[in-house]
Design a protein around this nucleic acid. Structure first.
Lengths: 152, 152
DNA sequence: AAATTTACTTGCATTTTACAAGTGAAATGT
DNA sequence: ACATTTCACTTGTAAAATGCAAGTAAATTT
C-alpha cells in the first residue's frame, strides 16, 4: 500500500500541504485550479450567494458532494469563512475573507479574456468590466467592506 | 452503457463541446481550470519553453501523457500552435497564439494574488509585476510580436 | 549501422468526479 | 404536539481523470 505524502488526514481531497513548487502561479493553481472553485467565488462576489442552497442554484449544476468538498477546501485556504445564521439555525452563511475578495482582479481578467476570445453571454457585466475595471473592483471591495453582500 | 454527450470522439479528455453555461468565467474555467494548463502557459510566456522536453523540465514534474494531452487541448482551444523545427525534424515547436498571449493579465493577477497571501518564491518576478504591471505586459506582448520568445 | 534524442503512446493502479439516494438537525405548518 | 418541510450535508457506486512506469517510432548523431 502506498500513501501520498502530499496530503494529510482530515483534509478535503486535493488540499495539499506540500506544494509542487514555490512558484506563486503554482500556488494559485493548486488552490483554484479545478472546475468549480472559481465559480463558487464568482457566485459569492458577483451574485451575492451566501448559502449552500444558493450555490446549488447556479447554472452549472455542481454536485452536492463536490460543493461541500470545495467549500471546505476554500475555507481551509482562508478564502472564505462561515458563521451560523442567527435567525435560522439550519443555515450556514458563507462569506469571502479579505483574501477571497482580493481574487476580484483574477476573476475580472478571466472574464475579459473569455469575452474577447469566445462566444459568451452576460455582456452587461463584460462591458462594465471593460469600461472601468478599477471602478468595478472598488465597488466590489466596498460592497464587502460594508457588509452589503447579502442576497437581495 | 452510458455516454457523456458533452464530449466528442477524437478529442483530448476534458475538451468539451457544449459548455455548462454561457458565463465567460465558466468558459475560462473549462479551458484552463485544471492543475497543469496554466503552468504550461507560464512556461511558454515567462520561461520561454517551446518544446515538449522543455516543458517536462519544469519543476512541478508533469507526467508525459498528461503533458501530451494538455498540449493537444490547448492547441484545440487555439491558445497555442505548433510547427516543425526546420533544423531538427524530431522537434515540434509550440508557441502561443494571440489568444494565448492575451492570458498574460490573468497569469499576472494570479501571481500577485498568491504572492500577497501565500509564502512563495520568485520574488524578483513578483516585484517586477507589482512595480509596473503594464510595462511588464507590454514587454511580454512585444517579445512575442518580435519572435524573441525562443529559449536562450 | 548502432546509439541517442525527441515526442510521444500504452497499460494499469490510484484518485477524483458525477449522479442518485439517504440522513439528521432545525424550522414550519396544522 | 407532531408531522412535514427545509437545509446542509453524507454515503455508495460508477465513470472519468491522473499519475507512474515502460515502451515505441521517427529523426538525428556518432
Amino acid at each position: 500500500m502506498q500513501v501520498n505524502l502530499f496530503y494529510s488526514i482530515n483534509m478535503p481531497k486535493g488540499t495539499r500541504t506540500r506544494r509542487r513548487s514555490g512558484c506563486p502561479l503554482n500556488a494559485s493553481v493548486e488552490m483554484l485550479g479545478d472546475r468549480w472553485s472559481l465559480l463558487i467565488i464568482r457566485d459569492m462576489m458577483l451574485r451575492g450567494s451566501r448559502t449552500y442552497k444558493e450555490f446549488l442554484n447556479s447554472h452549472e449544476r455542481i454536485a452536492t458532494n463536490i460543493l461541500a468538498d470545495r467549500l471546505r477546501r476554500l475555507e481551509n485556504y482562508g478564502i472564505l469563512a462561515t458563521e451560523r445564521d442567527p435567525s435560522d439555525g439550519r443555515k450556514l452563511i458563507y462569506r469571502l475573507t479579505p483574501k477571497g475578495i482580493d481574487l476580484a482582479p483574477v476573476l475580472t481578467e478571466m472574464v475579459l479574456w473569455a469575452a474577447r476570445h469566445e462566444e459568451t453571454g452576460n455582456q452587461a457585466l463584460v462591458r462594465e468590466m471593460q469600461n472601468d475595471k478599477e471602478r468595478l473592483l472598488a465597488t466590489i471591495r466596498q460592497r464587502w467592506a460594508e457588509g452589503r453582500h447579502q442576497s437581495p
